[in-house]
Nucleic acid binder design. Sequence first.
DNA 1: CTTCAACGATCAGGACCTGCATGGGGGACC
DNA 2: GGTCCCCCATGCAGGTCCTGATCGTTGAAG
Lengths: 224, 224
Amino acid sequence: MQVLIVEDEKRLADALAQIMREARYQADVAYDGDDGLYYAGNGTYDVIVLDVMLPGKNGFEIATALRRKGIHVPIIMLTARDDVRDKISGLDSGADDYMTKPFVPEELLARIRALTRRQGEVVFEEASFGDLKLNLSTCDLTCGAKTIHLGFKEFEILRILMANPKILISKDTLIEKVWGADSDAEDNNVEAYISFLRKKLHFLNSRVTVSAVRRVGYHLEETT
Amino acid sequence: MQVLIVEDEKRLADALAQIMREARYQADVAYDGDDGLYYAGNGTYDVIVLDVMLPGKNGFEIATALRRKGIHVPIIMLTARDDVRDKISGLDSGADDYMTKPFVPEELLARIRALTRRQGEVVFEEASFGDLKLNLSTCDLTCGAKTIHLGFKEFEILRILMANPKILISKDTLIEKVWGADSDAEDNNVEAYISFLRKKLHFLNSRVTVSAVRRVGYHLEETT
DNA sequence: CTTCAACGATCAGGACCTGCATGGGGGACC
DNA sequence: GGTCCCCCATGCAGGTCCTGATCGTTGAAG
């Protein structure tokens, strides 16, 4: 588990790094905002501890920039100012949590555990929608007593559809997320896999269907 | 977005529910731990605001029980006790965030936004005018109990009209925005789709009409 | 008031496109 | 060689979109 600490006050930064290492995290430290944004931009960290008042870019700017770049790593903001408006703008700029100094190290660790628990779990757990359960580690799709194995493309498409059951996902989005941004896959590929998926859903007697909206995209629906 | 509030102190609970509703959330309230766990067990909520000190099961037990049942809805814990050990055990029992009373409502809302931002995401938005509701994701148009599907061109035209109900939209504007700036579509195309739209509005028994102003453009009107 | 041209509304038809399903070929892996 | 997965090509079905023709309406000129 990798942690990035962005904090200009060197003594505090090093103390935090020490605490992290004692808790068995790997910790890197950036001492100003520009470095912090640069390191975080790699997207290799599991959580970022981000001071607000920084030389170079401040914490709000860093959080906003990261989110805009599509990097959704959990962020915990730290600040000495106990002002509610700061908290709100911090949280709305993309932070997941906000703590005021001084704080007890154990609370920071607990909040980090709470933030990282989610993604740690997800790896082993399964996604579900309606009567479907999709095992995210084995690509097996279960409905009631029946289970069937999905190919990787089928799996990826279904996973994306299940993660956003309320909105339509366009073929372009699916191509980008499943085949990759710079891919020459055609719409027909998506259609083919949607077809396979439907066939398998039918085989499982699932109440879930993949419905298409012409020229817009696909989404999952649960029929009665 | 659905919020469950579990809080035994009735005045605070109702105040929270009011705040949530003003922020456009649907809010349900449970006044003791057993009810809270029962409601939460449905798995239909997007976030749970959970008091720790409760008659029946306490907040820690509820969080633990939910997580054990595989329900991963975000939980924000509330408590009057500002004890770090409580915070830690709360966070480790499955809560995603922890706030101490008293708190500013806006901070709670900001923390809820931060928690829900990650998942459900892109709220399925809709535009509305008069008695019409247009689902911007699925191109479905609803009026009262009836719903009808719109073709893409019809949908685009209606969306533009609904976004600017007070001003007249010229055919040229519609052609530019729906067909594209460099299109050779003719006025008659627009007229045709306006006609389709009117037919569907009539079918829905809507009070909304598309009215034309000669040589100028179209706009929506709500009749009594 | 009447007339007339321009504009708008509507409809039917057919062209076109999108999405669906299927089968075959190719490559990776066992 | 067999199997699995992926990609591509094809035909089909049905919805969507466009076109042209017709009819109704408007408003201004005579």
